[in-house]
Simulated assay, not measured.
Amino acid sequence: MSSHHDTHLIHMTNQIAANLGGGRDEETAAAATCRHLETFWARSMKHRLVATLEHEDTALSPLAKRAVTLLAERVAQRHRG
């Protein structure tokens, strides 16, 4: 069960993905969405969003989920080194 805050983060991520996805292939749109999240979102927001991937019932759109997966990979890389 996600909190209201998580639901809001998911909603915002879905909107960003929809806005940045228009006319682009999925991988390019996912990368653009990921870059937006990395650039403009606070670290705590990014970590909460990445944590939503652990729930099968996440309401992320497929494009947003791909972007958050990319974000999770980048966050993990930073922690490793």
Rank of each mutant, 00 (worst) to 15 (best):
M1Q: 04
M1W: 02
M1A: 10
S2D: 12
S3T: 15
S3G: 13
H4T: 05
H4Q: 08
H5C: 09
D6K: 04
T7M: 09
T7Q: 15
T7C: 05
L9V: 01
I10E: 02
H11A: 13
H11P: 00
M12C: 09
M12T: 10
M12G: 00
T13F: 03
T13M: 03
Q15V: 08
Q15W: 05
Q15D: 09
Q15I: 01
I16P: 01
I16F: 06
A17H: 02
L20R: 11
G21W: 04
G22S: 13
R24Q: 07
D25A: 10
E26T: 02
T28L: 14
A29M: 09
A29K: 01
A30R: 11
A31W: 05
T33F: 06
T33H: 12
C34V: 04
R35V: 05
E38R: 10
F40P: 00
F40V: 11
F40M: 04
F40T: 05
W41V: 04
R43I: 10
S44E: 15
M45P: 05
K46W: 01
K46G: 14
H47R: 13
H47L: 11
L49M: 04
V50K: 12
A51L: 07
L53A: 04
E54D: 06
E54H: 10
H55L: 13
E56G: 12
D57Y: 03
D57N: 09
D57V: 01
D57W: 03
D57L: 02
T58K: 12
L60I: 02
L60S: 01
S61A: 02
P62T: 05
L63E: 06
A64C: 09
K65N: 07
R66C: 00
R66D: 02
R66W: 00
A67C: 10
T69E: 14
T69F: 06
L70I: 06
L71M: 13
A72G: 13
A72T: 13
E73K: 12
V75C: 14
V75K: 10
A76E: 15
A76F: 08
Q77P: 01
R78N: 09
H79Q: 15
H79F: 06
R80I: 12
G81W: 09
G81P: 03
G81H: 15
